Amino acid sequence: MPSYVVTGKNSSGEPLVSVNIAAVNQDGAVVQELDVVNAVRAELAGTAGIASVVAQKYEQVITNV
């Protein structure tokens, strides 16, 4: 699973808060991982002082030769 970093920035573009999402553990497919990321983005976007929210996705790629 990829990991995500959701960052809330002020009007100057400086990061104020950062949320790391390393895993969404479920027994079955209950919610999509992007739904979780978007919920965190929406929560940060509605917070006073946050002008923009950015979500970055990181994936590890392993190549066997």
Rank of each mutant, 00 (worst) to 15 (best):
P2Y: 05
P2H: 07
P2I: 01
P2W: 03
S3Y: 06
S3D: 08
V5S: 07
V5I: 15
V5M: 09
V5T: 12
V6I: 13
T7C: 07
G8A: 07
K9N: 11
S12Q: 15
G13W: 14
G13I: 13
E14H: 11
E14V: 12
P15I: 04
L16V: 11
L16K: 13
L16R: 12
V17M: 14
V17D: 07
S18H: 07
S18Q: 15
S18A: 15
V19C: 08
I21R: 06
A22R: 10
A22Q: 02
A23T: 08
V24Y: 03
V24F: 05
V24C: 05
V24D: 02
N25G: 05
Q26S: 06
D27N: 10
A29W: 01
A29L: 01
A29S: 05
V30R: 09
V30A: 13
V31T: 10
V31P: 02
V31E: 03
Q32M: 09
Q32I: 03
Q32R: 12
E33M: 03
L34I: 15
D35W: 14
D35I: 10
V36D: 06
V36E: 06
V37N: 10
A39W: 08
V40F: 07
V40K: 01
V40D: 02
V40R: 00
R41L: 09
E43F: 15
A45C: 06
G46A: 13
A48S: 14
I50P: 01
I50W: 02
A51T: 07
A51F: 09
A51I: 02
V53I: 01
V54M: 01
A55C: 10
A55G: 10
Q56A: 09
Q56F: 00
K57M: 13
K57S: 11
Y58C: 04
Y58D: 03
E59M: 00
Q60F: 03
Q60P: 01
V61P: 02
V61S: 05
I62P: 00
T63R: 00
T63M: 01
T63L: 06
N64S: 10
N64L: 12
N64T: 09
V65M: 00
